[in-house]
Amino acid sequence: MQEKMEQRAFVVALLLVSVAFALLLEPFFTPIFWACAITVIFFPVYRLLMQRFPHWPNLMALLTLVLCVVLVVIPVLVVVTSFVDEAASLLQKAQSGQIDLSKQVEQVRSAFPGISALIERLGMDFEQFKERILSGLMNAGSFIAKNAIALGQNTMNFFLMLGLMLYLTFFLIRDGHWLVELLIRALPLGDERERLLLDKFAEVTRATIKGNLVVAITQGTLGGLIFWVLGLPAPLLWGVAMTLLSLLPAVGAAIIWFPAALFLYATGDVVKASILMAFGVGVISLVDNVLRPILVGRDTKLPDYLVLFSTVGGLMMFGISGFAIGPLLAALFMAFWQIFMREFMGSDSLDDNGPAEAGEDPLPDTE
C-alpha cells in the first residue's frame, strides 16, 4: 500500500515538473520545432558524412549545420529583406500619389460594368466598396511597414532565436539517434508504437516541409518571373507573396496572379493579361496540381482535403510555422487512431488513404 502511494505521488510530481518545464520552454517553441524539423531533413547528410569520416562527429555535425545555413537560412534572410524593402517602397509611392489606386479601381469598374450591379446586390454602392478596397490596401501596406519597423527593433530577439535554433540543431544532428532511443525508453506507450509514431513524425515533417517549400518556391519564382517579364511593378514583392500564399493548397498563388490578370484586362493590356492568365493556369497552377500530391499528399499518406484543412488550421493557430505543424498533427492524429483501431478494436478496415483492400493492414509492419 505504501509503495503504491509513493509511486502515485512520484507520477504526480513527475507530471507537475514536466508541465512546469514545458511552460518554461514555451517561449522557445518555434526555434525548438524548427531545430527538430531541420534535423529530420538534414540528418541523412550527416549520416552520409559519418560513413566517410566516422571519427569526427562534431566536425561532421558542424559541416551539416553550415550546409543548412548556406542553403536555407541565408537565402531566406535575403528574400525577406528584399520583400520588406519593396513593400515599403510600394507603400511610399501609393501614399505620395505616384500610384493612383483610386484611378485604377475606376478603370476596373469601367472595364467590368457588372461589378457595380454585383456590389449593389450585396447592399453596398460602388463608392463605399472602393473606399473599403483602398483602405484595405493602405492598411495592408501599413501593416507590412510597421512589422518591418518592429522587425528592425526586435533584431536582437530575432537573431537570439535564430542562434538558439542553430545551436540546438547542432546537438540534435550529432546526438539525434541517441536522443530518439532515450525518448523511446522513457515514454510509456510501448516501444513498437513509439517507433511507429516517431517514424511518422519524421516522414510527415520531411514530406510537408520539403514538399510544400518546393511547391511554394517554384510557384513564387515562376510568378515573380512572369511579372518581371511582363514589366509589372514590384515583381519580387509579388513573387514572395505568391510563395507564401502557395503554402495554402488549392488556391495559393492564384490569389495574386488572377486579380492581376483581370486588372490588366481592365486597363487595356489585353496581350499581357492573356499571357499572364495562360501562364497562371497552364504553368503556375499545374505546378501545384502535379507536384503537391506527389511531394506532400503521397508521402504524408493524408487525403488532400485533410492536408488543406490542417494546413489552414495550422497557419491560423501557429502562424507561418503552422504549414508544417498542422499536417504533422493531422498525421499523428490519424496514426494514434489507427493504432487504437488495430490493437483495441480489432479493426483494420481503414488505412491512411481511405477504405483498405480486403486483407490489407492499415499500419505498416514495424518488425
Rank of each mutant, 00 (worst) to 15 (best):
I226S: 04
P27V: 07
W238V: 05
R8V: 14
R292S: 05
V12K: 14
L164H: 10
Q153I: 04
M316H: 05
P188H: 04
K93W: 03
I325S: 00
M334C: 08
T267K: 08
F33W: 14
A140F: 14
K146I: 07
V19I: 15
F336C: 05
K130E: 07
L245M: 07
A253N: 07
V271Y: 10
G359F: 12
D85R: 11
H55Y: 03
W238A: 05
Y167T: 14
L222H: 06
Q338M: 08
R47S: 14
K200T: 13
K4L: 15
P362H: 12
W34G: 02
G314R: 02
M242Q: 08
G231H: 08
V70A: 08
M50A: 13
D125S: 10
V84L: 11
V73Y: 13
V108M: 12
V307T: 03
A207W: 01
A330V: 04
N353S: 01
Y265S: 00
V72T: 06
K103I: 00
A140V: 11
I32H: 06
G224E: 02
A260D: 00
G252H: 04
F344A: 08
L162K: 00
M242T: 06
P327F: 05
M124E: 09
L232D: 03
L236P: 04
N58F: 13
N353V: 02
L350N: 12
V19W: 11
E357L: 15
G322P: 00
K4H: 13
F28L: 15
I32D: 00
A260C: 11
K146C: 02
Y167I: 13
L247Q: 06
L164P: 09
L244G: 02
W228G: 02
T300P: 03
Y305R: 06
V78N: 09
F53N: 10
G326H: 00
F344L: 12
T243V: 06
Q153D: 06
F53G: 00
D199T: 07
W228L: 12
G282F: 10
P303K: 09
E360A: 15
G223F: 13
L172I: 03
G136N: 12
I320D: 03
V19A: 15
M50R: 14
L24Q: 07
F170H: 13
G359H: 12
V108D: 00
F21V: 15
K272S: 13
L164Y: 11
D299V: 01
G239W: 11
I339T: 10
E6K: 15
T155Y: 11
A266N: 05
R132V: 11
E360Y: 11
L295Y: 03
A87G: 10
L222G: 01
L350I: 15
I119H: 04
P27F: 09
D352E: 13
L230A: 04
F279Q: 03
P27M: 09
L302G: 00
L101D: 03
